[in-house]
Design a binder for these strands. Structure first.
Lengths: 234, 234
DNA sequence: CGCTCAAAACTACCATGTTACATGGTGGTG
DNA sequence: CACCACCATGTAACATGGTAGTTTTGAGCG
């Protein structure tokens, strides 16, 4: 279990929306480290998380851990049962369906807004993420590929300009990313097909073809959920 | 047997706290009380919340208060500035716009899903809420009117059947409701017009007219946001 | 009279201690 | 042998105390 990230690295990674994060509390650092750990699959889904163990590993007291777990619960990554313990979320069919349905709603709405409001910046970030993913594919680095993929979709949300949706997207995509990580470790993923889909989304955005971009996002997410269900992950 | 009661009896009573833990922690109780207080306008928007004061008022220690504030922060009701304090959220133009845009997205999506998936139950709850609001209007009880209004829109979300959207809706509508409460205290609201809008939404849902229901929800929310902007609340 | 700086008061933040609850095991009893 | 009450242990929930940082205010100085 490798929780030993550098705080500064994590801080840079989670800087998508913080308006004024001049000072970052231990609680937030702890939350970020745990978030990463769950998303990257270092804790198997459904396992119990001991506050004391986490506190020992992260070299902090239990208070920040507790508050971080409260945060992660609102993001759907863990489930807290009073007096019994905290567990990493474990998906069921319904939850996966709901999450993907919700993500589709958000991304289709945001891609329309982003094309309308921030066309240039959207394209810039999409292309940058795409290049990042290409490099990851060449290097066969699945972790970096995931990061690029995440950045790609975050760009769509971010450039919608809607702070509320940006915030919610993070809490929606967390469990999905954790699921996908699990998927990676079990079945792998069809990288070239995924790359093609992203490429098409970029083209549709470049052409300001909102309808096509939305359709592509929808099918892109559907591919993922189908994949999850095939693997019977939930 | 020397003792009066058998342990097994107690076990039966609290056997399995299945879907929702019936044991509610002090933290959640605290969060609920603070949530209500903010939404009902007991704390003016933007005011500073002292952990110690709140702990004294609520007769608990500071730990539950802290964790409750973390919760409320994720719901957008308060804003925590490390080492500086916790403040009730104060809206600006952009936030209000974003929240209403987001709420519109959720409600239009959910009303379509609800009509498709839970038509009967949707209508039942909508009508019940409507009756509740009518009674509140007769009694000139604005608090009850707010509750009914909230229940009305929650019904739409709930019967979409999407757990992820249900969860997010709460965190989206919290600040909006707080804003509306503020609006009430300042300018009042056109109750009859609002009632008419709700009535029309019910009719559209009854007729399974998805497009019309969505359009009505959109304009309903737009009325609210216009009202907020007119009052220059944010 | 206004400005600067420093000290004090306040506050959040984190650590530690205490209590209460849940769980697994064991011995006793029908 | 089976079942159930009791007990021990581990863990979470809550309380409290100490520390570091921020804001404020007031006194001294320009």
């Amino acid at each position: 279990m490798t929780l030993g990230h550098k705080v500064s690295d994590l801080y840079l990674k989670c800087r998508h929306m913080d308006p004024i994060p001049l000072q970052t509390s231990v609680t937030e650092q702890t939350a970020q480290r745990l978030r990463e750990a769950i998303i990257l699959g270092e804790f198997p889904l459904g396992t119990k998380l001991s506050e004391q163990k986490l506190a020992d590993q992260l070299q902090v007291s239990r208070s920040p851990v507790r508050e971080a777990l409260v945060l992660l619960q609102t993001e759907g990554l863990v489930r807290v049962f009073p007096k019994r313990g905290t567990f990493v979320f474990s998906p069921d069919d319904n939850l996966t369906r709901d999450l993907c349905e919700h993500r589709t709603l958000l991304e289709t709405a945001c891609v329309a807004l982003a094309i309308e409001r921030n066309h240039a910046r959207l394209l810039k970030d999409l292309k940058a993420s795409f290049t990042h993913m290409q490099n990851a594919v060449s290097a066969e680095n699945t972790i970096n590929y995931s990061r690029g993929d995440l950045a790609f979709h975050r760009a769509i949300i971010k450039h919608s300009g809607n702070s509320s949706m940006i915030k919610v997207y993070e809490t929606t995509i967390g469990p999905i990313m954790a699921l996908r990580t699990h998927l990676f470790t079990i079945t792998g993923i069809q990288l070239d097909r995924s790359m093609e889909q992203h490429q098409q989304i970029i083209e549709a955005c470049a052409a300001r073809d909102v309808g096509r971009a939305q359709a592509l996002c929808t099918s892109h997410i559907r591919h993922l959920s189908d994949h999850v269900f095939e693997a019977q992950l939930g």
